[in-house]
Nucleic acid binder design. Structure first.
Lengths: 326, 326
DNA sequence: TTGTACGCGTTATCAT
DNA sequence: ATGATAACGCGTACAA
């Protein structure tokens, strides 16, 4: 492994001169600099990240921590993060699982973006206390070293509920998410608020865990209760909506006919459904980009405000007008 | 940032004693060891990865390099990798993009698994020459420091082709992948071999790039030529097959009725299709696990042989018997 | 331009 | 048998 020491020997200068030359310092003449660079290239020199990091106390690496690598959901998000950090000379690495948490306190990374309920609030606060900079996408946490970039879940859930109600549905099913998910809790809170504003609407809450299977289960339950006016169904995420969607179709019933359905997230998968699934959309790319931007600003010492990612309704034929207003 | 020096001061011992204690060396009394550990915990000590790495010349981190983060395809693969490396005390980080390549020569990672055509063969060979250990999943490359774990693409393509031919199809369309993809080239080679064995079969090759859009384009082309016996279509990956699938259905034609369709990869998405897409399956989890295992063995100095991931045919109603043999 | 202290942890060597 | 001293890994940056 060739080090600056080797270069120094070969070029007949001291290691400090080599270091200055490699770092474009004006402290060396152009002449010696070019000679040193030539030697470095010839020897195939590559700096040792650990040594530089040890001295500079920075790695130029940002970590993104995800619950899992299952992906479908994360592509755009990570792409958004990466583009921003790359532009500033940082690299993005993606990690998952408890074991990798060490990278943060051991200072392998200069900051982290968290979308992973495997981190407890306490753990994150401890890291923040140690001086590590964090951006959280999945919880509210107040600390000088923590910034949050959160979805406007409540607005989204309101949009979804209003859409069903405006289309004349007076009986609604809500397929919930896991209680330990911040997003799920927020969406549910907004659902309740909407229902408070609409006492004429009857609502039934069904359990769910954001996975497809729980959407299927909810679908069966709803099918077994079908009677009279078609109900509206709001699944708190698209994956469950897809499970429900298919269960309904597999039983010979029609989405948008025998019931109306709205999801949340506008994941890529919905492109493969027909009729179009109404859902709540937001830019995952922007979410990731914003998170990176906030993190880098914190690292460079700037003050940042918490950010919110706005959402909008995507209409679809999975919802159709009913009753009086139809 | 508390270091072993702080612990030494607090505990009234030398820094080396602290290091020995933290590393469970028998060179310190149980008594002093427990005292030192207590102090370490009290001070919230966490070792500095850069310092340890600098001395030990290892980071206990494995890098997985992917073409992009788009995910849908990679979830299981990465999970397989992670489980294996975690079990051996390593962490897995996922990287994408040219900029992150530096992590390898700069020795931030102890080894890498490559599934990313953004690496040229030359670049990889250079890293291998420098002593870095690599496992490649997307090319053949012979070097003492490179191991390959490749899909049995040829067997898969043969299975797909035979399946269509056995079901009586005498006119076949092949929707190709990008020419710079190893997997695509391998599959195409096997297709040609199968065709050589079946001179009675007429084949038409259509361009494709492994993305959904190119499957849609191929679908339109095929629809415009439909006449007589339903043809068989082999898309060299599932994503294109899905594009073709939907194009056909959107035009009022039936998959398995007006044409038979086979894909390759058995990606999750196919669960959302009806009728079932016939495709070529393999364990992505096993693929990742095998790659990690091979890499760790190389790192620990063991000799390893190249590995192959076997594939099998998943039958589906997207293919139905035709003509004489039906 | 160069010598050198420093960042932090590991480990061989030496002293008690 | 215990534990301290010091060299080392590699690059950076201040002082000379």
């Amino acid at each position: 492994m060739v080090s600056i020491k080797d270069i120094a020997k070969q070029a007949g200068v001291s290691i400090s001169t080599v270091s200055y030359a490699l770092n474009n310092s004006p402290k060396v003449t152009l002449e010696t600099k070019t000679r040193i660079l030539a030697v470095a290239k010839e020897l195939n020199y590559v700096p040792n990240a650990a040594a530089r990091q040890l001295k500079k106390q920075e790695s130029l690496i940002i970590g993104a921590f995800l619950t899992d690598f299952s992906g479908a959901f994360y592509g755009d998000l990570l792409q958004g993060m990466k583009e921003v950090v790359n532009r500033k000379g940082y690299d993005l690495i993606v990690c998952s699982g408890k074991q990798s948490h060490r990278l943060l306190p051991e200072r392998m990374i200069d900051g982290a973006i968290i979308l992973d309920s495997a981190f407890s609030d306490e753990e994150l606060l401890e890291y923040a206390d140690r001086g590590h900079r964090l951006v959280v996408l999945d919880r509210e946490l107040r600390h000088d070293n923590i910034n949050q970039v959160l979805l406007d879940n409540k607005a989204g859930a309101n949009l979804a509920m209003d859409y069903l109600i405006e289309n004349g549905h007076r009986k609604l099913y809500i397929v919930c998410g896991p209680p330990d998910s911040y997003d799920s809790r927020q969406r549910l809170t907004a659902v309740r608020q909407t229902l408070d504003r609409h006492p004429e609407v009857e609502a039934v809450f069904l359990e769910g865990d954001f996975n497809k299977a729980s959407g299927e289960a909810a679908g069966k339950k709803i099918l077994s209760e079908l009677s009279g006016e078609p109900p509206g169904v709001f699944c708190l995420n698209d994956e469950m909506a897809i499970g429900l969607f298919q269960t309904v179709q597999d039983h010979g019933k029609g989405i948008g006919v025998d019931l109306s359905l709205v999801g949340f997230d506008n994941i890529d998968l919905t492109r493969y459904l027909s009729p179009r699934l109404a859902t709540i959309e937001y830019s995952k790319h922007r979410w990731g980009a914003m998170a990176s931007q906030q993190l880098l600003q914190m690292i460079s010492g700037e003050q940042v405000e918490h950010e919110r990612i706005y959402v909008s309704l995507v209409e679809g034929e999975s919802v159709r007008p009913r009753g009086a207003e139809s």
